[in-house]
């Protein structure tokens, strides 16, 4: 047992040292695997902002993850074939500069989140779960039926996008890029949670009417949080596309939404670093079970089931003990 702060610190140190282990063990695959973990953790942190702290169960976060991936893929695609992107009368050049790619990703996923959030937040409870799912499914089927960018087959990137002075094709460099984004995401979400916005978000999860009675519009608070959440998850999607140098409709599928949700809950909601541990265990479990049996999903299902039925508060609660436990175990 240790304090949450200490555990968080250990997690960050451990992740920082991953490339070193990887070099010592002479297995560069470890670094790539952990890049995936870090990216999924970022997506999870994005979702957890509204899921854990805001009580909004979005079953459609693959929409943002996938959009980030596709923005990245499409920009690189147009950069490689020198065709400008046409949107109505406007024309854009493609780019392979990550800084631009990230900016575009953030803009587009925020706009998508504004759109989806605006309509979805009219509903609550089950209907909210289902309408967010519906929006993600729209994008999924659209990506399959629109042949320009590969349709069902997806879109390959010949090279990762670039940053000046860095070689992004080097797995260790790319890992640290993801790591830096993880730190930024953590600091940003922490800042949000301690700001008036975050406090009213947490309050509106408990009681909308009371929030309204002190003169704050809970819908607006939820919408802004939803947009931030979508943007963070979108950015993770962009990194994911660059990691694999490939995007396909799979990352827009409802299974992807489920996966992000599972790793948030596996790690422990209401905790900023929960999704990191969740992503870690999810991916390691997948690798481990995948190594020993072909039917690893069967056992993964069992483990998730046991976790939901008997250990609700998540992995982080096994490792630490503090005031949150009473709340999360109810």
């Amino acid at each position: 047992m240790m304090s949450e702060k200490k555990l968080n610190f250990l997690i960050l140190i451990f992740l920082f040292l991953v490339p070193l282990f990887s070099i010592l063990l002479n297995d560069i695959y470890i670094t790539t695997l952990f890049s995936k973990i870090v990216i999924l953790a970022i997506a999870g942190i994005g979702l957890n902002l509204i899921l854990g702290y805001g009580g909004m169960v979005s079953f459609g976060h693959a929409a943002f993850f996938g959009l980030g991936g596709y923005v990245t893929g499409i920009l690189a695609f147009h950069f490689n074939n020198y065709e400008p992107i046409q949107i109505l009368i406007f024309e854009f050049e493609g780019t392979n500069q990550l800084l631009f790619v990230w900016i575009f990703t953030l803009i587009f996923s925020s706009l998508l989140a504004l759109f989806i959030g605006y309509f979805s937040l009219r509903t609550t409870g089950v209907y909210f779960i289902m309408i967010t799912l519906a929006f993600a499914q729209m994008l999924y089927y659209f990506s399959i039926s629109w042949p320009t960018y590969g349709g069902e087959d997806g879109l390959s990137l010949s090279l990762r996008n670039q940053i000046p002075f860095l070689n992004t094709m080097d797995p260790i460099t790319f890992f640290y890029i993801c790591y830096v984004w993880l730190i930024i995401a953590i600091i940003f979400v922490k800042f949000i949670l301690n700001s008036p916005l975050g406090i009213s978000l947490k309050a509106s999860k408990e009681n909308d009417d009371r929030v309204r009675s002190v003169g704050i519009n809970p819908k607006k608070v939820k919408l802004i949080s939803f947009i931030i959440s979508g943007a963070i998850t979108g950015l993770a999607g962009s990194l994911y596309a660059d990691l694999n140098r490939f995007v396909s409709p799979t990352i827009l599928s409802w299974q992807m939404s489920g996966e992000i949700m599972i790793l948030v809950i596996l790690g422990g909601m209401f905790r900023l670093y929960g999704p990191i541990l969740g992503a870690f265990f999810y991916i390691i479990l997948e690798q481990f079970l995948g190594g020993i049996t072909e039917n690893w999903q069967f056992w993964l299902g069992f483990i998730i089931l046991l976790e939901v039925l008997y250990a609700k508060a998540g992995i982080m609660s096994f490792l630490i003990k503090d005031k949150y436990d009473e709340k999360t175990s109810s």
């Binding site: 079953f59 409870g125 299902g301 069992f302 483990i303 998730i304 089931l305 939901v308």
Partner: peptide, 22 residues
């Protein structure tokens, strides 16, 4: 709550699908 139900039944999908594949 609904969140747990979604997760647990998601896990059931994995179990059933892999079980049938088996």
């Amino acid at each position: 709550d609904h969140l747990d139900q979604v997760l647990a039944t998601f896990a059931l999908i994995l179990i059933f699908s892999e079980g049938i594949r088996w």
